[in-house]
Design a protein around this nucleic acid. Sequence first.
DNA 1: TTGTATTATTGCACTAAGTGCTATAGTATA
DNA 2: TATACTATAGCACTTAGTGCAATAATACAA
Lengths: 104, 104
Amino acid sequence: MPKSRSRILAAVHQTAAGLRKAGVIDQQTMREFDVLCLDPVKPFDAAQIRRLRTRAKASQAVFAAYLNTSTSTVQKWETGQKRPSGPALKLLNLVAKNGLEVLT
Amino acid sequence: MPKSRSRILAAVHQTAAGLRKAGVIDQQTMREFDVLCLDPVKPFDAAQIRRLRTRAKASQAVFAAYLNTSTSTVQKWETGQKRPSGPALKLLNLVAKNGLEVLT
DNA sequence: TTGTATTATTGCACTAAGTGCTATAGTATA
DNA sequence: TATACTATAGCACTTAGTGCAATAATACAA
């Protein structure tokens, strides 16, 4: 099972009891349901990350600044030496979906 | 010097030559200048992270799902055992500015 | 083509974040 | 009180993140 989905399921499971109160949906229970609607976070391989960056016409240094990480890190993502962490992957998904500007 | 600023400056420095072409501003050079306009990423301490989450009325598990990280990690952020990584901090800044919904 | 600047790569060494798990303790509610 | 739900604590481990310095590749101008 992909990690992102298991995280979603973990959150859902931990708040599953909310389903029983289906009659009384306040803001908090809404938030719990929202998790089910979270876009599953897609993994990005080295080439995809590079494509994402080049499409945005950004150098590795600039791209790194947007993501608040180091050039060295972007480097290693794109050469397959390291894989982006959970939050980093989330950011990459946001960029893929909405463009680099959303991180401004 | 705060890390986020040094990252910005690093990116600016590496592309400083772009300033010389000030006459010919195409999309690429624009992108380089944009980095100067990036909101400096603020650090969040344990209490601030918790406040951010509770204001969003999310449990640690739900909050973690939004950030695509683990409950254990949010746990440690809020108890001061660990500090969020660069990209994680960027996400927290986005949430602080635009609410949890931007991560949907 | 040759020189120059920008950008990207490689490799190393190290730090600390991320993770999972289990057991425990609050906390609210039925 | 009993029963969820939620949060905490502590452990052990993996691996992302980072910095730096040297090298290579790429693009661009003279």
